[in-house]
């Protein structure tokens, strides 16, 4: 049963994130929802690389036992870095949106004709 806990957490994180993106009106909360999805996917990648009772893949001469897979960790690291860049860009756009619209309600930020 304990084996399944991370996968349940992954599904829960992604669903919570999607819920926030779809049903929350505040743009900041939508951005938080996207980071939830990202956390879920990253957790999923890390979990895939873990083997039972394994050690961290950082030794040149291993003290014995199996190592967890290093590749998903490298992937996760890349994904986290990209995620930070996307997050920063989204938040800076939210700042600009607030300057123009004076609100962060997603239902009011719908475009339309200029002036």
């Amino acid at each position: 049963m304990a084996f399944y806990v991370p996968y349940i957490a992954v599904v829960a994180l992604i669903l919570i994130g999607l819920y926030a993106v779809v049903f929350k009106r505040n743009l900041i909360k939508i951005v938080i929802g996207i980071t939830f999805i990202e956390c879920g996917v990253n957790l999923f990648l890390i979990t895939l690389g873990y083997r039972e009772k394994s050690i961290a893949p950082i030794y040149t001469s291993s003290p014995g036992g199996i190592m967890s897979l290093p590749v998903p960790q490298a992937l996760t690291l890349t994904s986290i870095v990209i995620g930070v860049a996307v997050l920063a860009l989204m938040l800076s756009l939210v700042v600009h949106i607030y300057r123009h619209y004076k609100t962060l309600d997603a239902r009011k930020i719908i475009g339309g004709d200029e002036e």
Partner: peptide
């Protein structure tokens, strides 16, 4: 075509 970003994602889901 509401223009609301939440609805875009709702269609995707």
């Amino acid at each position: 075509h509401t223009g609301n970003v939440s609805d875009y994602i709702l269609w995707f889901v």
